[in-house]
């Protein structure tokens, strides 16, 4: 039997998802042996034109990482969809927008204005901004168009599976690869692979008690007890609204979870769920006192949706 054909592609990504694949170390050779890798711009010398020339659905699996930030990303997403039987949104950026998705809390204009005009080190070159087409003396050159709104992969194409995490942990990636190679039937379309179906709290070794909170702390403000739940100590931790899978890496390093594994099953919106979770444990019955306590929770939007703004119910801030 011919080896299954594998493609890896990155859109608006940091490269960390690719590094996570390389962090399989020796096992990367097993991957190279088991699959016929037909496209991987980061490592192999195949070009966009090679992919365009392929027959539709001739790639068995495409692991797609990175968010959709510009015209090129979106074009490539469609191309990979056409050519692949299965498309997997790989990593937080493709899965739910990830850190680049925080850009939906501002606007494209604000980004361009700051970067190319207002930032203190920039010398404004007669109001020059990047242009998609520029006529230079020698000819015209092009760059892609930046989109206003960052999108997750399933907002531009149909996605078969999701592998969450920023980045997905190498042992989890390996688990998925082993599963595929075992030839067992693939799970139902839309399934999340390489992760658990509980919350991060379930994997966290810290001891949880009945929570009653009158005060919240920012992580740098206190030295937390290493054995007790961080949220119990008043440090905002997204463990209760994050999918299990990483092994609670952050709380194990005395750092609160920020939810990179995405929402747990049956949770349509991480931030909304976090609002519920925190509201249940605040120990106050008077509106003024409640407001005072809520004042201590800074930037709920950027914290509760750290990796998931584009995939949240509201998707972006309104332009006011």
């Amino acid at each position: 039997m011919a080896k299954p054909k594998l493609a890896l592609y990155w859109a608006a990504s940091c490269g960390g998802c690719e590094i996570a694949v390389l962090d399989l170390h020796e096992k990367i050779l097993d991957v190279a042996n088991a699959f016929d890798i037909v496209f991987w711009p980061v490592a192999l010398d195949f070009k966009y034109s090679d992919v365009r020339a392929m027959e539709d659905k001739s790639i068995d699996i495409c692991l797609f990482n990175g968010a959709i930030r510009n015209s090129e990303n979106e074009e490539m997403a469609h191309l990979m969809r056409d050519k692949s039987k299965l498309v997997v949104a790989f990593g937080a950026c493709a899965h739910e927008g990830g850190i680049p998705g925080l850009a939906n809390l501002t606007t494209k204009d604000a980004i361009l204005k700051w970067v190319f005009k207002d930032s203190p080190s920039t010398v404004s070159n007669n109001g020059t901004y990047p242009q998609t087409h520029t006529r230079m003396p020698e000819g015209e050159i092009e760059i892609p168009e930046m989109w206003e709104t960052v999108k997750a992969l399933n907002q531009v194409i149909d996605v078969d599976y999701y592998i969450p995490g920023c980045p997905p942990q190498p042992d989890q990636i390996w688990g998925v690869i082993e599963y595929i190679l075992s030839g067992q039937p693939m799970p139902a379309k839309g399934a999340t692979l390489g992760a658990g179906d509980k919350t991060c709290c379930e994997e966290c070794p810290r001891e949880r008690k009945e929570k009653k909170l009158k005060q919240f702390f920012r992580p740098y403000e206190i030295i937390s007890d290493p054995n007790e739940c961080l949220l119990d100590q008043g440090i905002i931790c997204l463990g209760p609204v994050s999918r299990s899978g990483c092994g609670a890496l952050c709380p194990k390093a005395n750092i609160p979870c920020r939810g990179c594994y995405g929402a747990p099953p049956n949770c349509p919106d991480q931030g909304a769920k976090m609002v519920s979770a925190i509201s249940s444990v605040i120990d106050a019955h008077e509106p003024e006192e409640i407001e005072k306590i809520l004042d201590q929770i800074v930037d709920p939007l950027g914290t509760f949706y750290r990796f998931s703004v584009p995939q949240s119910i509201l998707r972006r801030v309104e332009k006011i």
Binding site: G16, I99, L102, A103, I111, V115, P167, R258
Partner: peptide, 27 residues
């Protein structure tokens, strides 16, 4: 050909989060 806009979208975030946001500039 690409700009992700970290400098602008980090505005409004608590500064202590920066060591774990800006890592995502480059993996």
């Amino acid at each position: 050909p690409e700009l992700r806009g970290f400098e602008q979208f980090c505005v409004g975030r608590p500064v202590e989060e920066m060591p774990r946001i800006t890592t995502r500039i480059c993996g």
